[in-house]
Amino acid sequence: MLKIADKTFRSRLFGGTGKFASSAVMNEALDASGSEMITVALRRVDLADPDDDIMSVLDRDKYWFLPNTAGARDAEEAIRLANLARAVGGTNWLKLEVTPDPRTLLPDPVETLKATELLVKDGFIVLPYMNADPILSLRLQDVGAATVMPLGAPIGTNQGVLMQSMIEIIIDQAQVPVVVDAGLGAPSHAAHAMEMGADAVLVNTAIAVAGDPVAMGRAFAMAVEAGRMAYEAGLGISGKSAAASSPEVGLGFLQ
């Protein structure tokens, strides 16, 4: 079981609610993925379509909502969004995203650290989205982040765990769960992250835009489970150390 703050999750796949063709497909795909925590964003109500409300189509007993601060460009904007999210959702959980560069949507480390510290002090459970930077990960942990969420690859690139070396270090050092977010375009990418020892992965686009989102949701669920099982089973010899092995060393000097 995965524990974040005081909550436990059976599924190690977190879902997203963006980019689905319809609410019906979204619901079915999320169900197939087995996700228990899903992200939502905050926007102005469309006054021309007052019934368009995602909360009315999702089962609040089935899913734990994780509001994000998508669109925030600095700590101040993120904190404003966080307070709005807390007011509308009645939850103090938050996926903190601070992305000043609209081209790459890469997270700003300085603003993210600043916002995390302030939000934790204000009682939020903060899950910060971050670049795969091991020191930043430790600094976020130090100021009270509930998880760290390093990106596998730049968002939208579907390149998988491109940041493998850095994420390995992050996992090795972390005292809080490590959730790999962004860049995971295929179930094999998710399995890879889980085999490395990630505690969970967050997948939205790859499921939402698949030819068959429901089947893809299920495929990710299976991949995450397989990856976790492999990690727990203990993976065997890796190429690196096998190649590094050298002939035995003489210890004739020992007495």
Partner: peptide, 10 residues
Amino acid sequence: LELIRFVGGG
């Protein structure tokens, strides 16, 4: 006034 609600997002 800002009227805000949750929408789909990742």
